[in-house]
Amino acid sequence: MRSTPPFIRRLSDGAGAAGAAYRAGLAAALAQTPVLLGRAVFYGVCLMVLITFWDKVAAHRLPGTLAARLPAGGLGTYVGVTEWVTLSVPAVHFKLEDDIRAGALEPHLLRPKSYLAQTLAGQAGFMTARLVMLGAAGLLLLALFARTWPSVPTMGAVFTLGVTGAAIGLLLLTLVGLTAFWLRRVLPPMLIVQKLAFLLGGLFAPIAFYPGWLYRLAWFSPFGAHLAFAGAAIIGPPSWTGFATMLALQSFWLAALTALAVLVWRAGLRKTLREGV
């Protein structure tokens, strides 16, 4: 133990604390089973409306429209995936707003571990519970709506891209929450980010249906990495290179958004330490 370099020890201590926060977040989510079930019901209602909608579109394939490009089974499984990711991301922005605005930051600042890291780890635990719960509900709902389940390799790709996409969503909402250092309410930036995620992430329809320029914008934006990749994987199982490209792009956004969150957090913390809450 004595011979471990201090840097390595600090890193492993930090990981240990984050791991403990992750487990606590997961346990807290599981302790509120009715809330999780309520989330699953909400997921079910969203799917009911959207699947009904896309089935209607697919039922009358109007010539000369995009309907010709609809996948054989319609977009039921597609919205199943994008809604799964969207509804799994916890409302970390409201937690950050509460802590930052109500002065609840102080008890955390009096601890030796980073508040941001501990909070993100706890919320990731929370998100894990939702991903599992809604994932199971999704498979059940697809069976209910008489959809065939995707093949195992496709499910693997969707799972990987979906979980990474959810992590990107968590970071996007974290950035929204950190604006609370400067704004009184985070709701306005949240609405903007949410709507951008719906549009550029392709929550309701694949971004491949968009006009070329909008498609490219969506593909290279963090919102595409958040939702559209997992959705794309379920309509047309990706090639290995396609899968690797999407995962690489997701990794880039994961790193970039993490770095940005750390920078914004540090700026906000400096402001708080100087000016008080």
């Binding site: 209607k56 995009l66 719906f198």
Partner: peptide
């Protein structure tokens, strides 16, 4: 009020995009 107006406008844009591609639904 402003946020809600932007929010509602966004949905209209989404529908606009949808009908640009699909013409009609039922």
């Amino acid at each position: 009020v402003g946020a809600m107006a932007v929010n509602n406008g966004f949905w209209l844009v989404l529908w606009f995009l949808f009908f640009a591609g699909f013409k009609e639904v039922g």
